[in-house]
């Protein structure tokens, strides 16, 4: 099921390691093990990867490859069994709940596949939520910029149930960006959307990277979504196995086929 999409022109410009760009997030030999004794399963088996600031990265891989686990660990939603995770210069290991909460509030933005918004709050209140719980006023100019980028100005007073799925997801994007986080994590942000709404969201994320130098890390299984990014990292069996720069959907699809074939072969021969 391949949806053809025009190759985005922006991905040709190389902003990948531009001058002055540091590392927004970093995993160093990260292991995540579930279960005990004989039943242990390593979801992440020594993953080391840097996510440069101002870059749109996709994390891909077959089911069970560990891509979601990696994102959860990077985003301080889950703890690692071994190794180190950094957001900017800050190592997550050893942080208490209070510090993690502050980190998520101030340094990280989230976009989930679904259920991103608090149903009792208006779009505007949802967008401002990370700031208002910190007791801060939004920076008016940045807020306006974000609102205009997602194109929701006439919808700010609406509650989530009065918005379409695509609009809800755009509100979620605005909320993720309103704090100017070090990094935005997006977990299958287009998974619940039709292709047109999905394209809007992806285009918005792209613009936030291009125009405002945000850092976005997106987990997806959709090659078209991946084609919007600067870099695709492929995971299989809890390891980084490959990566593509400035990918096209066709490149990504090809790589995925190879990976899943390898994975099937691996299962067949036994390990």
């Amino acid at each position: 099921m391949f949806r053809s999409a025009p190759k985005p022109s922006h991905s040709t410009s190389s902003t990948v390691f531009g001058p002055g760009s540091g590392v927004a997030a970093r995993a160093l030999d990260v292991r995540k093990v579930y279960g005990e004794g004989d039943a242990t399963v390593a979801a992440l088996d020594g993953v080391s990867i840097d996510f440069a600031a101002g870059v749109f990265t996709a994390v891909m891989g077959p089911s069970g490859s560990g891509k979601s686990t990696l994102m959860h660990c990077m985003a301080a939603l889950d703890t690692v069994s071994a190794g180190h995770v950094f957001i900017g210069d800050l190592e997550l290991a050893g942080l208490g709940d209070k510090q993690l909460t502050k980190l998520r509030r101030d340094k990280i933005g989230f976009i989930f596949q679904a259920y991103n918004l608090v149903p009792t709050l208006t779009a505007q209140e949802n967008i401002e939520l990370p700031l208002s719980i910190a007791g801060r006023k939004p920076d008016r100019q940045w807020f306006d910029t974000v609102i205009d980028t997602v194109g929701l100005r006439d919808r700010l007073g609406h509650r989530p149930n009065q918005l379409s799925g695509g609009q809800q997801q755009r509100v979620a994007c605005a909320r993720a960006l309103v704090t100017r986080p070090d990094v935005v994590f997006a977990d299958e942000p287009t998974g619940n959307l039709d292709s047109a709404a999905g394209a809007e969201v992806l285009a918005f994320l792209r613009r936030s990277v291009d125009d405002h130098r945000q850092t976005v890390i997106m987990v997806t299984h959709d090659p078209v979504a991946a084609s919007y990014t600067d870099r695709v990292v492929f995971l299989a069996d809890g390891k980084v196995v490959d990566e593509l720069r400035n990918p096209t959907a066709a490149d990504v699809l090809e790589e995925m086929k190879v990976l899943s074939a390898r994975s099937i072969a691996g299962t067949a021969t036994g390990s």
């Binding site: 939603l77 709940d97 502050k102 509030r105 989230f110 608090v118 719980i133 910190a134």
Partner: peptide, 16 residues
């Protein structure tokens, strides 16, 4: 539960 999880994920503290 999910809403609580969402609030926590975007930085609402336990005591809040």
């Amino acid at each position: 539960t999910r809403e609580v999880g969402l609030l926590r994920a975007i930085g609402v503290s336990r005591w809040q």
